[in-house]
Design a protein around this nucleic acid. Sequence first.
DNA 1: CCCTCATTCATACGTTCGTTTGAATCATAC
DNA 2: GTATGATTCAAACGAACGTATGAATGAGGG
Lengths: 209, 209
Amino acid sequence: MASPDTRTQLLDAAERLFAERGFRGTSIRAITDLAGANLAAVGYHFGSKAGLLVAVVRRVIEPITAAQRAGLDRLLARTPDPTVTDLVEAFAGPLFDEMPAGDEGGARTSRLIVRIIGDPAEEMRDWTGPADDAVRDRYLAAFGRALPGLSAEELWFRIRGVLAVTAVDRVEVYNQDVPGCSSPVAGEAARRWAITFLAAAMSAPPTGA
Amino acid sequence: MASPDTRTQLLDAAERLFAERGFRGTSIRAITDLAGANLAAVGYHFGSKAGLLVAVVRRVIEPITAAQRAGLDRLLARTPDPTVTDLVEAFAGPLFDEMPAGDEGGARTSRLIVRIIGDPAEEMRDWTGPADDAVRDRYLAAFGRALPGLSAEELWFRIRGVLAVTAVDRVEVYNQDVPGCSSPVAGEAARRWAITFLAAAMSAPPTGA
DNA sequence: CCCTCATTCATACGTTCGTTTGAATCATAC
DNA sequence: GTATGATTCAAACGAACGTATGAATGAGGG
């Protein structure tokens, strides 16, 4: 439909800059400069700066959601009642694996996600599609079967905890020199540590009323 | 030293607006309007907008750090080797309890923290004092004794996971509606759920190499 | 060649931003 | 009362912002 070159380079530049400087902290001029495009290109291809943000976030989220859905399908094809650890692996794994090339172990994309989570502004709220909601609901149901006795509220709380850990942990704010640590953590180790951490957390017995 | 009235009201207004709209999304004019102060008051009392941010964050963090230190002191006075659950309670509890009055269950302050975590900008990086680092190191040591066999890197990863869950989980509560859940979650329930979730996560066996 | 349509371009508009300035105001001590 | 130092005030500065506009540019079909 549109020239894929300029459009894609705008998305690439915006993805990087939105993660580093935030939506409001990134000017259209900075994006078009980095993309080697004209100032008016954003307005032409995406309508507005907010439209560009939606396109950027959708492009990041889509492969994650797809991999989550495929993982759950694969699991349910094998057994009707997967273990908690398997579910955690299928749900959280794509948050590590489905990161754009060139991203530093997902740190940049994680930062973008953290920024969006923390921002209640209008422009940040409209990027989840029905596909994301459907996958989320399927995981909620599967976890609910694997964790009988857990209320829907507490289960949802725990799912959000999974997202929080995977998103925030790779943002290297706290990677500043901690005694006895050689930061940053290698990508593959962080992935395994997260699965261990989260599988144990999800498997905790229900909190007493 | 300075008139406490204007100064405090600037801090109050900035704390609210920084959390809601972010640092760059909040204008000095919006802050001074909400505080009922003159436009130049920020420059006079805090030097610059960035100076105001540092003062805001320090005021938020200080009681949390103090309560974490007091909790650990209390624990170590009772026994030299506290349990993981006790340590989690002492470390994560203040992140729920030490929230400013008027905050909606800590959601607003949590949002501010999430925003700062996700922002690599210069102005956001200078708010941790030596007191914070000292408390953090003491908890690292105590957790290390309670979790033998866990590498320093994986332990630090888990501590960051605790911060991630406590900070992010209350942010999203007010953003989404999930089928079968009557959000928002009451503050006291979220606190207990978080401790359960995190104590199990911290207690997980070390990840195999 | 020429018409068409998508895309790119330089440019401008009105707004809002953070900061600065110098005068006005206030409280307090002498 | 008046001097003093701290605080508040209205006003202005240049810079950067998002967006809109109309002309140039390019490729492809007739």
